[in-house]
Design a protein around this nucleic acid. Sequence first.
RNA 1: GCGAUCGUAGCUCAGUUGGUUAGAGCACCGGUUUGUGGUACCGGGGGUCGCGGGUUCAAGUCCCGUCGAUCGCCCCA
Length: 418
Amino acid sequence: MSKDKSAKVATPQPVRGTQDMLGDFADRFAHVVETFERVRRLYGFKRVEVPVIEPTAVFARSLGETTDVVSKEMYSFEDRGGESVTLRPEFTAGIARAYITNGWQQFAPLKVATHGPLFRYERPQKGRYRQFHQLDAEVLGSDNPLADAELLVFADQLLKELGIADGVVLTLNTLGDAESRDAWRAALVAHFEGHSGALSEDSLSRLDRNPLRILDSKDPRDRPVADSAPDIDAFLTGAAQDFFGAVTAGLDAAGVAWTRNARLVRGLDYYRHTAFEFVTDRLGAQGTVLGGGRYDGLIENLGGPATPAVGWAAGIERLAMLLTEDAIDNRLDAVIAVEDDDQLAFAMQALAGLRGSGFAAEIVATGSPRKRFDKAAKIPAHALISVSTRDGVPHVNVRGESKRAKDVEAHLPSSPRT
RNA sequence: GCGAUCGUAGCUCAGUUGGUUAGAGCACCGGUUUGUGGUACCGGGGGUCGCGGGUUCAAGUCCCGUCGAUCGCCCCA
């Protein structure tokens, strides 16, 4: 670092809502991704990669051109050719675009999975960043309720293998087919308009924009009206009832626990049938750890053929926060403390030998030699190896009782003979 | 966009009704002690007290503004 303070330059700060990860949290993040990659193979989901940047129209269509979301909450800008482009705020629209433009209809039904960074221009809060990361799984080109069930069983197994299923509950609802949804929506609007005097200001504006959202309002003034609103059940067509019944039967057969949440909704019109969220009470206001649903109308909205599809996404940071302390074992196999610089070459040879044999190993060979043992002892490892000089030759001592420590000891070079 | 809380060393924090030269622990560096040892002690480096303005004899402390962070609201694709 420069000692000339007058020449000090201002360090650029990170972009608001971005984060840097180091050590433990980065390991937890990687553990979530690795577990996802392993489990998705068990379910036959192909890996798919789609661009981080797309024409703004891809997301504008998926989100409804008029909403605040498009105008205020996306990272959009003009490229040098004057085209409006957007950093992806979700995976689904980009995958749907790729499905159309690459002719992936030929592979239908297509099961794909991906993960990576997403961008939303929002105010950061707990577990919610402007650049964040998600896991994503989609089934495109299937109108079979077993596809919904398979995705949910996949999600359930993922959460169980991550060890965070305790305290997480699958909440499930149906939005019906287009006919059911329209009838229910009309009944809801009539109900809310009949009680408009009792609604909060926020919900009065929702009544115009997005009346379904009143159902899950957090404002206590809205709860009586929302709780007394009609469920969709009375408006479901026979086909929609059968569809939902087949999804829940699939879950029951696979042993996946679920609860009905008749208040769980999706605002956008292309959502049909199944809507679901895995919810925890351990993350404050941001309780959803994995959510998704069926979006049979989206691909058509993007100019493609009418194509049924269903999928889910989950925030990697949130999942990483929920991992238990012991989910990650960062311990090295061995740490070598070089207590005498005359034995540095010997210690380096031992270190290279261990690493070459597949052991994770670190060396402590700087600073005061008499403090190196204590320094090494603070590094989590199965085996603590000290190297000193006794009778003019390297003297090695190994501490550690685990099987791994014994393996390490067996791979150390023997002391050179004099 | 709105509200609340908070910004002091690399990290976690203390700092009294405003009052000498702003402290501790951890971390880092050096020394002593111990000598199969994760101990203890001594010392050292490191701070525009987020930034700017104001009140005052005097501001880390009070006031205003600003930037940032956190939590919540809105939104949630």
